[in-house]
Structure formats: structure tokens, C-alpha cells
């Protein structure tokens, strides 16, 4: 354990030692060594506090209430369960998929399933590729039918832009990603979707408390186009400098983060807009 600054992380062996120190599993000599080191090393002191805090979270009912753990638990359980799929020998006996399971498959980030490269030694394996299901071709056929029937009635101004191929999450839920969040207290108002000309104003709704906002506009590739901090109102008049940066027929994302006394108190879901000309 060499001395480090608080911004540096102890390596794993150090952490292991700290974990055993907290658990009281070290010999007297090791304990004395760790104590001596802690007296001189701010990084390990901070790491010890962090680790102790992590372990204590199991009993922290106050934070659990703040974090709505009871509400989040079923969602997280379903997400983790969706990472697993019945193995081939069970596939034939699998029950018909229930809607909740399907919904969780869709909500779960694709990376969660795709990144899992493990196979299990027992009856189920971690999901690597979604198992083909009988309802997929049926749903695809139904969707195609709806498209064919409704193609003349669709208002294309309300559909996602072509660049939306890069934004599957946006496409899935409409113009707002995360609009389904029950905890969202910050809502983008305009511009959203296809707009005829460059926007004059950005506007959003925010519930108190807040004292300032940061507006950020970026490309679907997450390159920041414009960032404005310390805004004290829930709208922002577009200056000429920003107008010059925005290009017609391009898709942009934007979001606003609210602060109250230095604390981030919320953020709008990402909204997209595309300037038609």
C-alpha cells in the first residue's frame, strides 16, 4: 500500500486488505500495518469510508426510501431475470411468454444481453442472443399490415427522422426518451420533433426547487453542439451564435439539467428535433 492522493484508487489487493480489515479478519500484525498506513494515506482512508458505506447500505432504510427501492426492486429483478434464458433442453417445455417478460426484454438495454458471454453449467444459461419466439413473426406481419393500411394516413411530420435509426430508444417511445419516468419533474417542451425552421426558443417545464439550469444541445453521436450554463429561467432565447451552428435537415438532441444550491435536482429526458429547412 503506497501513499496516494485521494483521487487515486487503491488497487485490488489494497481493497482486499481494507475489506478484511473492516471485517476484522486480519492478524494483529496486519491490522497494525493497515492502521499505520491509514494514518498517512488519504486515498485509503477515503476508500475505507466508501467501502464501509457500501456495506452499510443494506441497513440504510432512509436512503432506500429516498431512492424508492421498493418500487425499483421489481423492475431490477425482472431486468436481471431477463438476462437469463432457458437452455435448449428446456425450450420445448417453455411456457408461452408473458407480456411482462416481453416488455422487460424490450426495455432492458441491448448491451445487457449482448455483453453476456457466459454459459452456465446448469439448466439455464445467460442470454446471449434472444431466443426466437413464435410471436415475433406474427407481430412483424401485423405491423406490416398496419403500415400498408395506414400508410396514406400517417402524418410524417410526427414520425422519427431518418437519423432515428441511430436512436432506437427514441423511436421506441416517441419523441421523448424516458418520458415514461414516474420520477421526472423536468419536461422538455419545445422544440421537439420535426420543425419547419430553426428554433427561436428552447423551453422546458420544471418543478421547484431549482435556481439555475444547464442547457446542452448535442448530436446523436453525443458531440456537444452548444452548452449554456447558469440559466435562471425555464426558457432560452436562441442567440445568433447558436442559430449559426444549427444545420437544416440535421437531428439534434437536447436536455436541461436543473440545479438547486449546487445540487443537481433533476434533468429533462432527452428530446430530439430536426430542422426541415
Amino acid at each position: 500500500m503506497n501513499e496516494r492522493r485521494p483521487t487515486e484508487h487503491p488497487d485490488y489487493d489494497d481493497l482486499e486488505l481494507l475489506g478484511r480489515y473492516l471485517a476484522g479478519e486480519l492478524t494483529d500484525d496486519q491490522t497494525a500495518f493497515v492502521r499505520e498506513h491509514l494514518a498517512d494515506c488519504p486515498a485509503c482512508r477515503l476508500e475505507l469510508r466508501r467501502l464501509a458505506r457500501f456495506l452499510a447500505l443494506e441497513q440504510d432504510d432512509e436512503l432506500a426510501a429516498e431512492a424508492a427501492w421498493d418500487r425499483a426492486k421489481p423492475t431490477l429483478d425482472a431486468r436481471i431475470a431477463a438476462c437469463w434464458a432457458p437452455s435448449a433442453d428446456q425450450a420445448d417445455q417453455a411456457d408461452q411468454p408473458d407480456l411482462a417478460r416481453q416488455a422487460n426484454d424490450i426495455i432492458a438495454p441491448a448491451s445487457a444481453a449482448a455483453q453476456l458471454g457466459l454459459t452456465a453449467g446448469s439448466s439455464r444459461r445467460l442470454r446471449v442472443v434472444p431466443r426466437p419466439q413464435w410471436w415475433i413473426p406474427v407481430a412483424a406481419a401485423a405491423a406490416m399490415t398496419l403500415v400498408v393500411l395506414g400508410i396514406n394516413r400517417v402524418d410524417f411530420s410526427a414520425t422519427a427522422p431518418e437519423g432515428g435509426a441511430m436512436l432506437p430508444a427514441l423511436d421506441a417511445v416517441g419523441p421523448l426518451r424516458g418520458g415514461e419516468k414516474s420520477t421526472a419533474r423536468f419536461v422538455p417542451l419545445r422544440p421537439i420533433g420535426d420543425i419547419a425552421a430553426k428554433p427561436d426558443t428552447f423551453a422546458w417545464h420544471a418543478e421547484q426547487p431549482w435556481d439555475r439550469f444547464t442547457l446542452e444541445i448535442y448530436t446523436p453521436g453525443l458531440r456537444t453542439v452548444y452548452c449554456r450554463e447558469h440559466l435562471a429561467t425555464t426558457h432560452f432565447a436562441v442567440p445568433d451564435s447558436l442559430r449559426a451552428l444549427l444545420r437544416a435537415d440535421s437531428t439534434y438532441l437536447w436536455s436541461v439539467q436543473g440545479f438547486h444550491k449546487l445540487e443537481p435536482v433533476g434533468a429533462t429526458p432527452e428530446a430530439w428535433f430536426r430542422i426541415l429547412r
Partner: peptide, 27 residues
């Protein structure tokens, strides 16, 4: 799960983001 979720919530300050984050941690 509880410890990881609450740990993530400390950083995200948002329940939905904490669920995403905790899922990635377990992956």
C-alpha cells in the same frame, strides 16, 4: 441487489437511471 442499487442511486440521483446502472453492474 439492494446495496448495488443504492450505491448507484447515490451517483445517479434518479431511480430509473439507478436501475439501468445497477443492471450494468450485475452484468
Amino acid at each position: 441487489r439492494r446495496r448495488v442499487y443504492l450505491w448507484c442511486f447515490r451517483y445517479t440521483h434518479d431511480a430509473d437511471e439507478a436501475v439501468d446502472c445497477a443492471q450494468e453492474v450485475f452484468v
